[in-house]
Nucleic acid binder design. Structure first.
Lengths: 210, 210
DNA sequence: CTATTATTTGACCGACCGGTCAACTATATT
DNA sequence: AATATAGTTGACCGGTCGGTCAAATAATAG
């Protein structure tokens, strides 16, 4: 009973779009409402605060990231190291697309909010940390599989996974700073392999992937 | 002639402190003035805008970073690879100190502003990009020296230097996100060596450094 | 048709935003 | 002592901030 509405989803999507292309603080509740085609009162009917909308937007981003980046790249019929390289390839494609569409490389939604809010909002910091931990677990499993297959030397998969996530966030940050998607291409594939202590992946890919 | 004043430096230092521990947008001109013990009119006597104060704060940060982190770590009587490890050690010390003093790991001043403002303020983005390029050049020289000494395999020093800077920014971002300086210790030394394609540094350090 | 519930509306709140300005004070030069 | 200059003061500007609220409206259940 009562009316039904898609205002909630529209607000979440607006928040994701606007905060991704600018920042948390630079997007006001009013602008959020305008973009969603919703009145302010409706905003506060669905969300107790701007922070809570942001948390919902982070949930939405997890879905989106899984569908558009992670699942295609980490498809199990690719060998594990190729998955990680495919992941960086997707990140490059995404950055290049955003630059073409908006003129800017927006970086990583999660990393952006982490940097802007970690020292100011413990709830958002915790959520962001959790998302990054989930990602780290995925990388860890992939790396562990590569070690089992002896594609990588024996080592601590968990710490290596953290290092890979750190590297990915750092590369993304630099690409944003220089507004240059090409940086991801230049730094992605090659050095992530080196980071893992692997040999150059290209020769290996020739026999095991192609 | 006329009065003399240290208000300018006090404003720069306040900006550095406040924006570093929170964010650009969360610090208002009013708060900046209060912390510096200065009236608003004086602010705009010295700086045409908040953005210009931020640019001055970035210049100040370059000095500070050079004195407290870079020069001690990149001291030329250390072998080149040890310099890079010493750099990460200093970054860990700094993060741990900040956490003890403020309760938060604040990340990297330059990286923070890069993430928050790159898509919004082209002038600040350009300044930040320049600072990171200067840092990359320092790393490049160090890496090139290591390659000459055959401490590292032959490779493109410039791209490797970019990868190292990216990795450092990523590690710093993760440490901030998890509010855990230990992450820098865990990920710093070991994986930066691996990133460079070097052997484990500890044995080498035993003969060439100690 | 009525009651119930979900949603929408838009005016309103005090606080703060970045920035302006004209008057005033302190110092140094002549 | 007169003048020029550098710095200081604090009130003031229009606009936006996140958030509140009471009343109106729309849809469903009985």
């Amino acid at each position: 009973m009562g009316q039904v509405s898609d205002a909630k989803q529209k607000l979440v999507q607006s928040a994701l779009d606007l905060m991704y292309s600018r920042s948390y603080a630079s997007v006001g509740v009013q602008e959020l409402c305008e973009r969603a085609g919703v009145q302010k009162g409706s905003f506060y009917h669905f969300f107790p605060s701007k922070r809570d909308l942001t948390l919902a937007a982070l949930d939405r981003q997890r879905e989106l990231g899984r569908c558009t980046i992670l699942e295609p790249a980490f498809c199990p019929d690719r060998p594990p190291l190729a998955r990680i390289e495919a992941w960086f390839d997707r990140l490059y494609d995404h950055a290049a697309t955003m630059k073409r569409k908006t003129g800017c490389v927006p970086g990583c939604v999660v990393g952006n909010l982490a940097v802007e809010l970690s020292t100011q909002d413990e709830v958002i910091r915790h959520k962001v940390a959790t998302l990054l931990k989930d990602l780290t677990r995925l990388i860890e499993q992939t790396v562990a599989e590569a070690i089992r297959r002896k594609d990588l030397p024996q080592q601590n998969a968990k710490v290596l996974a953290e290092a890979i996530v750190a590297y990915m966030e750092g590369v993304t940050l630099l690409a944003k700073t220089h507004n240059d998607p090409g940086l991801i291409k230049r730094l992605g594939r090659k050095y992530v392999t080196q980071l893992m202590g692997g040999h150059d992946g290209s020769a290996k890919r020739l026999r095991s992937e192609r």
